[in-house]
Amino acid sequence: MTMVTSAGPLISLIAGILILIMPRLLNYIVAIYLIVIGLLGLFGGHLR
């Protein structure tokens, strides 16, 4: 049986566990997420 998982839910699960362990980590996770989404929005179509 082959299990295929996507990265989104796995990253969310890991981030949620880390936030429960260290609540201050939430600031960094949100900041990194916003930066990555912003960069993908600006340059996503131009990287190919």
Rank of each mutant, 00 (worst) to 15 (best):
L40D: 03
L34H: 04
Y33M: 08
H46W: 10
M1P: 10
I37G: 00
I21A: 15
Y33R: 04
S12D: 12
I37W: 08
P9E: 11
A15D: 03
L25H: 00
L47H: 03
G8D: 10
L42W: 07
M22E: 15
P23R: 05
I19G: 00
L47E: 02
F43K: 09
R48L: 15
I32R: 06
I35M: 11
P23N: 06
V4R: 10
G16M: 01
I37N: 05
S12T: 14
N27T: 11
L13R: 13
F43G: 01
T2Y: 11
Y33E: 05
R48F: 15
L34G: 04
I29F: 10
I29A: 07
L34Q: 11
L20I: 07
V4N: 08
I29Y: 03
P9Y: 05
G16N: 05
V4Q: 07
G8I: 09
G44D: 00
I19M: 03
S6T: 11
N27L: 15
G38P: 02
N27E: 09
I11P: 02
R24F: 14
L39S: 04
I11C: 13
Y28Q: 10
I11A: 15
Y33H: 09
I21N: 05
I17F: 06
L39C: 08
F43E: 03
L13S: 12
G41R: 00
F43T: 03
I37A: 13
M3K: 14
S12I: 03
G44T: 00
G16V: 00
I37T: 09
L18Q: 07
I35E: 05
L13A: 14
L13Y: 10
A15W: 01
L25F: 10
I14W: 07
V4K: 08
S6C: 11
L10R: 12
L42H: 03
L10K: 10
H46K: 15
Y33I: 06
I17H: 05
L26G: 05
I11V: 15
G38F: 15
I11D: 08
Y33P: 01
L34K: 13
L34A: 13
L10M: 14
T5K: 13
P23L: 06
Y28N: 11
I17S: 08
R48P: 15
V30L: 15
R48Y: 11
M1N: 12
L13D: 09
I14P: 02
S12W: 04
L42S: 04
G41F: 01
T2R: 14
M3G: 08
L20H: 09
Y33V: 06
L39K: 02
G41C: 00
S6F: 09
P9I: 05
L39D: 01
I14M: 13
I14L: 14
T2Q: 12
M1S: 14
L18A: 11
L47T: 05
I35K: 07
